[in-house]
Simulated scan of single mutants.
Amino acid sequence: MTFTKTTEQDSKYNHLEKMTVKELLQNINNEDKTVPLAVEKSLPQIEALTKQIVNQLKKGGRLFYLGAGTSGRLGIVDASECPPTFGVPHELVVGLIAGGDYAIRKAVEFAEDSKSQGWLDLQEHTISNKDVVVGIAASGTTPYVISALEACNKKNIITGCITCNKNSPLAKVAQYPIEVVVGPEFVTGSSRMKAGTAQKLVLNMLSTTAMIQLGKVKGNKMVDMQLSNNKLVDRGEKMLVNALNIDKQKAAVLLEKYGSVRNAIENYKG
């Protein structure tokens, strides 16, 4: 099959500089509406990778996200939200970006072109065949990501990917590829837009579903969330009020004593 980068094809819109603010916003919004539908078409692929992630995490493995630029940053965002949201260790879900932590804020020239650094970055975390590595690249051609997944395959480490082009080199390397084809961007080639949104939606699905399967949600509540600010403490107290049929003052005492909603519920004597 031929490989065509739809993420690089010409925008369906032209003369953007002549549009009014209202027209720009409406047109961007119209394009954004197509993203969830593109994700829906990839649900079977998303399910296949999610099941692998759940299996490996249950065996004591970890989930790694690997990407460059926007893709790398999105992986880091998803990984960094898992500990406060689900109360898991920081090392359970790890986001790595080409160019290192400096690249989170500023672009590092040619970092994504390295064919060795991705595997070296994974080795720093003592990667093993208990883990899962998900490469993220809208283009599906990023050497940093592709070469890392190739090395993982050789070491019998489960690999997946999230890309926004069909039949890309990355998808051919990944054992469990996810291809969300969102089409040309509003600004030609600006894959931080629809492609980035699609990647974020898929990452939400992967991590949230995995954490629910690991028992980190009770009912529909984040009972293991870290109580790291007043908003979350207040949310935790309200959870206890509803779950245990107690007043807010008693909930506050329980939450302070036991440190989490789950512990408070499990230790409540009535």
Rank of each mutant, 00 (worst) to 15 (best):
V108W: 02
L74I: 10
A264I: 06
I28T: 08
C152G: 02
T126V: 11
L92E: 00
A68T: 06
K154Y: 06
V54G: 01
M19N: 11
C152R: 05
N156L: 10
I162A: 02
L203H: 01
S191M: 10
K238T: 08
V202F: 01
T126E: 15
R105L: 09
M211T: 03
K231V: 04
V35F: 07
H90N: 14
L74Q: 05
G60D: 03
A195Y: 03
I46E: 01
Y102R: 14
E266F: 11
E124T: 13
D113V: 10
V108R: 12
M225W: 00
G75T: 03
S228K: 14
V181D: 01
T188E: 10
R235H: 00
G219R: 13
K172H: 14
L96G: 03
N263I: 04
D32R: 15
T208P: 02
A251S: 09
T209H: 02
V134A: 03
N242Q: 14
P83H: 08
L201I: 09
G140M: 04
C161R: 15
S147G: 07
N27G: 05
A210M: 06
L120K: 15
G67I: 02
Y268T: 09
E237N: 12
L63Q: 04
G72L: 07
E150W: 04
K194E: 03
K59P: 14
I97T: 11
D78V: 03
G95D: 00
N55A: 12
G160E: 01
N153D: 02
T142G: 12
R235F: 00
V93N: 02
F3D: 02
V241W: 06
A111I: 10
A79M: 07
P44E: 03
K218R: 14
T2F: 10
I178S: 01
M193T: 04
C161N: 09
T159A: 04
K115H: 14
Q123W: 03
S168D: 03
D247W: 12
V39C: 12
G196Y: 08
Y268F: 11
P84K: 11
A111Y: 01
F86Y: 02
A79H: 01
M225D: 00
D131P: 11
K22W: 12
K248A: 06
I158Q: 07
M19F: 07
K218P: 14
N204C: 05
G87N: 08
G215F: 07
I146C: 01
Q26G: 07
G236Y: 00
L66S: 05
L25K: 11
K41C: 09
V253K: 11
V180W: 06
V223A: 02
T85Q: 04
Q117A: 14
I136A: 04
T6D: 08
K22E: 11
M239V: 00
D234N: 15
T4S: 09
S139T: 09
E47V: 12
K33F: 08
V54A: 06
Q123T: 08
G270N: 15
I246Q: 07
F64V: 05
G100D: 09
L66T: 07
H15E: 14
V182G: 01
T188W: 08
Y144L: 06
A138P: 05
